[in-house]
């Protein structure tokens, strides 16, 4: 029964939509590559049959819109047929981006939690700092990414750290805001109970506020890790194409290598899905073990 509902409510609709997307992608590839192909054929003086023409639109070296199988082929070639540490491998580039993402995410989460604890305990910080944190959510923070990169490289800091800092910057906001909400989520009743136990602030924090904030923590971490990945990718743009998913995008855009761009995009998406899924699974596991309510 459960399986039947899963197939009917999830697998079937999602599968259908994905199938439609792939079909639409093929149609778009044909439609968008056809003008260029017609032009090439006319110059070469060949008149292909319509099936030959269809195949040709799907196998251009620099198509306007690469067909799905071309992208998959490129992904396959650049991940499984080359050594993972060679510069041609997407695994290598994904790893560069992933390492910046993870270190930035770790720093951002730690910073966000610390700020949230400060805000919950110091009223002056709550009144003066929290409005700025919330207001800064409305600002396109990513705009300062190039400046951070160039500045840090001017004072001799290059490589992983500048990108990680951008990720930190992007990921600490969701964590800070979510954790403030989470640390304030215990009922007044529970806080009063802690007071009757004559618990001090540290004990209340450890034994009540932090356990109560765990579901909020994982929810905001899911947002934060997606944001850190975006930060790391954008952080790779201004350094010029050195390494990483962002540099693959930039290199692809310089040389109009649409297949490479799509492959890099899909590699980035796979990394994003893996990261969010991991955080989600960890959250489910921890929440279940702690008997927490989902927010």
């Amino acid at each position: 029964m459960q399986v039947g509902r899963f197939v009917h409510d999830r697998l079937l609709p999602i599968g259908t939509i994905l199938l439609v997307i792939v079909l639409a992608w093929y149609v778009a590839a044909y439609a968008m590559n056809a003008p260029f192909q017609r032009d090439t054929d006319r110059r070469a003086g060949v008149t292909p049959t319509s099936s030959e023409f269809l195949v040709k639109t799907m196998s251009q070296p620099k198509p306007t819109m690469p067909a799905p199988h071309q992208v998959v082929e490129n992904l396959w070639k650049n991940t499984l047929t080359v050594k993972p540490w060679s510069k041609r491998s997407l695994v290598y580039h994904a790893w560069i981006t992933l390492s910046a993402t993870l270190s930035g995410f770790a720093m951002g989460t730690a910073l966000g939690v610390l700020i949230a604890i400060g805000i919950v305990h110091i009223p002056a910080l709550d009144r003066s700092f929290l409005p700025w944190i919330i207001a800064s959510q409305t600002i396109p923070i990513l705009a300062i990414a190039p400046m951070i990169i160039v500045l840090l490289s001017a004072i001799g800091i290059t490589g992983l750290l500048p990108k990680a800092l951008i990720s930190t910057y992007l990921s600490f906001f969701p964590v800070a805001v979510g954790m403030v909400k989470g640390l304030r989520s215990p009922d007044v009743l529970h806080l009063d109970l802690m007071r009757t136990y004559s618990a001090n602030k540290v004990q209340t924090l450890w034994k009540l506020r932090i356990p109560a904030s765990v579901p909020f923590f994982f929810t905001s971490m899911k947002v934060a890790i997606a944001a850190s990945l975006i930060g790391a990718i954008v952080g790779e743009l201004p350094t010029g194409a050195v390494a990483g998913i962002g540099s693959k995008l930039l290199a692809g855009s310089y040389y109009s290598q649409t297949i490479d761009i799509f492959a890099a995009l899909i590699a980035g998406s796979i990394v994003a899905i893996l990261l969010v899924t991991l955080v989600d699974l960890a959250g489910r596991f921890v929440n279940a073990r702690m008997g927490a309510r989902q927010p």
Binding site: I230, I233, V234, L249, T258, I261, F262, L265, A272
Partner: peptide
């Protein structure tokens, strides 16, 4: 959750 910004070059 995807880095949709990556479609910019395309």
């Amino acid at each position: 959750a995807l880095p949709m910004i990556g479609i910019a070059p395309i």
